[in-house]
Design a protein around this nucleic acid. Structure first.
Length: 569
RNA sequence: GCGCCUGUAGCUCAGUCGGACAGAGCAACGGCCUUCUAAGCCGUGGGCCAGGGGUUCGAAUCCCUUCAGGCGCGCCA
């Protein structure tokens, strides 16, 4: 059932009847319909201004005639306001249509059948020996949510954690470990101990030039596959992943691959050979580059003057490998906007190599930077908020609210986890991803207003009403849902699938977050204006159907952004 | 200097493939719990949509331009 489609059809016939001379192209089409700013005006509107030229009539007169021809009382009624034809659905029918659709499909509401297409998502992509902090929130949450959204819309998804596990810094880290560290301290101190070693290395490096050479030597040993280097580095990697896994588990995030930079180390030869063969590689200032001046970009560096590969080389190799392995139809890079130029260069080089798919299948899903209470984050100066700390404090806050408001609640810890974690995820995915984020503790721990807990609370409230309801055996009477508050909820429910599609089209999960929030807001208003459980059995049945539909859609919306919906809180 | 992005209420932001009086949350103030979860609901105040030009019946939205801020611009990733 597509309301927009059928409304367009109705108006089309009406326009044809009223103005037989109107050219086909001017007749109402789904895309021409708008939703009026105020529901008082109607459920759909068709602006007639553009027709006034062809018909040589004033828009209000046109609208009036079309409206006159569009009245079908059993489906919808039409009237003109100025140059608009405004169309009102038959409210009880609309309620029945929407609710039957939502309830029949349940969690599959808005789901689209498998389309045989594959999307590869590169997200989170943590660095070895660095602790998870709020700077990683956006890529992790966006990637996870996009993966769920694409899957809902019928795509096969491949989530890749492109590990930052290659570079001289890891040689330095081993050198530092050999000098000042031991396994006991590293096992006990975890990733923080590794970071501390690295920081110390940098401090002492200035006074002792031997250190730099030592670090380089160890990196060379990693490159050559030296057993000791591999052993040490392997354990560093394990340690980091174990740490990160705790956070991923808490957030409900999974990956299909952890193939990162190291994985592509032996796969760059192909890229270099191909670039050379195709005459794209040229020497410049001792290095090898692909010139992109024709595209108004600086050259893309492929090989350093010492012959070593670079970031772009690895990303080119990764793109080709992913294409060969997964045969993707889309490959998304959920990476901060600082790397805008880098990705534009890499995509352009792929295109120049003859891979036409790079033009429309590769996409940089860019997002804004994170600062901490007005200042740039800096691990060195301790000006960071670690993710585990944020999640812990959010859960504490949730628990204390539960202790205060629902002291008798069974499973308090589970609810507190869902709410605390949900608050963090929801806030991260509420606004356009391109916006910079300035992190403030009091904002992060606010659970009022446009927040995850607000939406979860609405869901729990629905569950509570449904628990109290008894099956009264009556057939639902949808005339009980013709009031403005119920209709507002129904309109939002009916538009929800469109929000999912919009989120996918723009790679913007906030479209889903906001649509879910809108449903919750409308329902809370409804809840206060109208009593759901009432002596009127057929009406109650219909209001419960609305409540159940809202509960389903909130649960679905939250699940698409990776947030749990507890039944009680 | 060049390129990309951002600029809407005190703060954080929706709305930006043109449409009907520019919306929400937070903060402030004032109401609403003997009835389905008050993490809620209602109300009040608060805006030359950064400035200027243009296109259009119609511009926060499209084009040009200026200004402000962020990011990037060869051997880091």
């Amino acid at each position: 059932m597509d309301m927009r489609q059928s409304v367009a059809e109705l108006l089309r016939e009406a326009a044809r009847a009223a103005f037989p001379q109107l050219p086909e192209a001017e007749l109402p089409q789904p895309a021409m319909l708008e939703v009026p700013p105020d529901s008082e005006l109607g459920d759909f509107a068709f602006p007639c201004f553009r027709l006034s030229k062809a018909l040589r009539m004033a828009p209000p007169a046109i609208a009036q005639q079309i409206a006159g021809a569009a009245n079908r009382p059993e489906v919808a009624s039409a009237q003109n306001v100025g140059g608009y034809v405004n169309l009102f659905f038959h409210r009880a029918n609309f309620a029945q249509n929407v609710l039957e659709d939502v309830l029949a499909r349940g969690r599959d509401y808005g789901r689209e059948p498998e389309n045989g297409r594959t999307v590869v998502l590169d997200y989170s992509s943590i660095n070895i020996a660095k602790r998870f902090h709020i700077g990683h929130l956006s890529t992790t949450m966006l990637g996870n949510s996009l993966k769920r959204i694409y899957a809902h819309l019928g795509w096969r998804t491949v989530g890749i954690n492109h590990l930052g596990d290659w570079g001289t810094q890891f040689g330095k880290m081993i050198a530092a470990f050999k000098r000042w560290g031991d396994w006991e301290m590293v096992e006990k101190g975890g990733v923080d101990a590794l970071t501390a070693l690295y920081v110390r290395f940098h401090q002492e490096e200035e006074g002792d030039p031997c250190l730099l050479e030592e670090g380089r030597a160890w990196f060379r040993r990693i490159e050559e596959g030296d057993p000791e280097a591999a052993e040490i580095f392997g354990r560093f990697k394990e340690l980091t992943l174990k740490d990160a896994q705790k956070v991923y588990d808490l957030l409900g995030i999974t990956f299909d691959s952890y193939n990162g930079e190291a994985f592509f180390n032996d796969k760059m030869g192909r890229v270099i050979d191909e670039l050379r063969e195709k005459g794209l590689l040229e020497e410049s200032e001792g290095a090898f580059v692909v010139d992109l001046e024709a595209y108004k970009m600086p050259p893309c560096l492929i090989l350093k003057s010492d012959g070593a590969t670079l970031y772009a080389t690895r990303d080119l190799a990764a793109a080709l490998w992913r294409k060969d392995t997964y045969h993707f139809d889309k490959c998304l890079y959920v990476v901060a906007y600082q790397q805008n130029l880098h990705f534009r260069q890499v995509f352009k080089v792929l295109e120049l190599m003859g891979y036409g798919w790079a033009k429309d299948q590769m996409e940089h899903v860019a997002f804004g930077m994170v600062s901490y209470e007005g200042q740039a984050m800096s691990t060195r100066e301790g000006n960071v908020v670690h993710l585990d700390e944020l999640l812990a404090r959010a859960q504490e806050k949730a628990l204390s609210v539960i202790e205060e408001k629902s002291p008798g609640l069974p499973g308090k810890a589970d609810a507190a986890r869902a709410v605390g974690v949900g608050a963090v995820i929801f806030t991260t995915l509420l606004n356009s991803r391109i916006k910079d984020i300035d992190f403030w503790w009091d904002r992060a721990l606010n659970f009022d207003g446009d927040t995850g807990p607000y939406v979860q609370y609405t869901h729990a409230r629905c569950c509570s009403v449904l628990r109290k309801a008894e099956d009264n055996g009556a057939a639902p009477d949808y005339r009980a849902l013709t009031d403005d508050e119920a209709q507002a909820v129904l309109r939002l429910l009916s538009r929800f699938p469109e929000a999912i599609r919009q989120a996918q089209k723009d790679n913007e999960p906030s479209a889903v977050t906001r649509a879910t929030l809108d449903v919750a807001k409308a329902f809370n208003k409804y809840y206060y204006e109208r009593r759901i459980l009432d002596a009127d059995a057929p009406g109650t049945k219909a209001r419960l159907a609305l409540t159940r539909a809202v509960r389903n859609v909130i649960e679905l919306g939250l699940s698409l952004i990776g947030v749990k919906a507890p039944e009680q809180m």
